Structures are given as C-alpha cells and as structure tokens.
Simulated scan of single mutants.
Amino acid sequence: MRVLLVEDDENLRFGVAAALRAAGFAVDEADDLPRADEALFVTAYDCAVLDRMLPSGDAVALVERLRRDGLAVPVLFLTARDTVADRLAGFASGGDDYLVKPFAVPELVARVRSLCRRSAVVRPPVHRVGDLEIDTARRQVRRGGVLLTLTGREFAVLEVLAARADQAVPRGELIESCWDEMAEPQSNVLEVLVSQLRRKLGEPPLIRTVRGVGYRLAPPGAR
C-alpha cells in the first residue's frame, strides 16, 4: 500500500515516514501543497496524510479541489487545530479522518491502515493459496496452520501477489506498490526480498518467477 505524507516539519515527517515504512507501507514525502498536488496527479495512492496548515496554504482547499476532480483517495488530516469547527471543516472538504497534534504515532499508523482498507477495490479479508492463508485484517500469515513471522515489507509483497493469485504480477508493479520513490527500480531489492519470502514460506515453493515479467503466487502443481 502506498501513502503520500505531506508535512513541513522535517523531524515529524521523518519520524512518521519511518514508522509507516516499518509497518510495510511505501511512503512518498512532500513538504508543501504544490509538491503534494503534483504527486497526487502522477501517482495512485491508497491514502494521503496531509498536515492541515502548511506555509503554502490550507490543505483543505487542496482536498476540496481533488474531490471536485473526482479523486477519491482517502485523506487523513494532521493538525494542531482541535476545535469542533476545524474538524467539521476538514470533513466537509472531503477529508476522511482528523488527528490532532501531538499524536501517538502507532495510532496514526493504525488509522492509515484503516483508511487504506476503504479503497475502491474491495479486497477479501483472507486470501488462500493452497495451504497458505493470508489474513489481511490481522496481518497474519499461516502455512499448514503454522503462523509465520514476516516483516512489514514481506507481508506487503505477499499481499499484492495473493490479491492476483495465479497471475503474473509485473516487477515494476510490485516495486511501485510496496516501495516508495526512494527505491531504485533497477536494484535487486525485490529479488532479495522474494528470496527471503520463499525461504520463510517453505516447501513446496509457492512463488514462481515469470521470466521477463515478475512473479506469480500459485499453489503447488499449478501450471
């Protein structure tokens, strides 16, 4: 899942982005409204986290325009403005959630995850591929009934593959969905992660390499 984080406080932005990445999200960062506008125009996000008051203006105006243009990306506002009128203005503009500063970062991560689940594409709560079970709500993976320990990024890649089970998922799509703009597309980060994931999933193998394309998650014996 890919998130846009817009915050002009560099230290806060760094901390929130690090927490989201540790939770398995791909995070793109911006520090003003023009950069946020450009990012939202060129990239499809599962959620946008916007500081309400930025030196370049009030993010409410940006969200109002996005909604008029038909962009339905879920929006979480971050703000020090905590009056009822401020919150109502945020929701009236098309915002989906509102978190007042100072906030607990784990709560923000939980709220972002909840908003991402509201995306237009309905995802089943549990994917099953052979004896592999991926519970997206609890973020748990079991094979043969045994609970596996995956990193946030490993879970993110497996979730994308599971949503397209039996289909070849292009390498570029996996990179775009599970890494942020800081990732180098030509590097071997995906290959290294898939190797680790295969090792954790065990035998017989479930993730297959589709030469010239990417990877496919399929039950043993599938062609």
Rank of each mutant, 00 (worst) to 15 (best):
A137N: 06
L115D: 08
R139G: 14
V27E: 03
E176A: 14
A61I: 07
D82C: 07
L201Q: 02
D180H: 15
D58A: 02
E203T: 11
P170I: 02
S114D: 13
Q167L: 12
I207H: 08
E176G: 07
A156Q: 01
Y45D: 03
A19C: 13
G57T: 05
D131F: 02
L5K: 14
R87N: 11
G15D: 08
V169D: 09
D69C: 10
E159F: 05
L88I: 10
L99R: 09
R198G: 02
V42Y: 11
G130D: 00
V169L: 02
D37N: 15
R139A: 07
D82Y: 03
T151G: 05
D51V: 04
A19H: 12
R216H: 06
R81G: 15
A137R: 15
A156V: 02
L12C: 14
R198Q: 07
R113K: 07
V122W: 08
E10F: 15
M182K: 15
A183C: 13
G214Y: 13
P185M: 10
G15R: 07
E173W: 01
D31W: 04
A61M: 05
D135I: 06
L40V: 03
V126I: 12
L217M: 07
G57D: 01
R211T: 00
A137Y: 09
V16G: 14
Y45C: 05
A168P: 07
V27T: 12
G202Q: 01
D46P: 10
I134Y: 00
R13W: 05
L174I: 10
R198Y: 06
L115C: 07
F14M: 13
G212S: 00
V49M: 05
L158I: 04
F25Q: 04
F91L: 11
N11C: 13
V49G: 09
G130P: 01
R164P: 03
Y215C: 00
K200S: 04
V146R: 15
R35V: 05
S114T: 15
C116E: 11
L115E: 08
E176P: 01
A165H: 10
A163I: 15
V75K: 01
A59Q: 05
V169N: 04
G202T: 12
C47L: 02
L12V: 14
W179H: 04
V100K: 12
A30N: 12
P219I: 00
T136G: 05
M53F: 11
V60G: 01
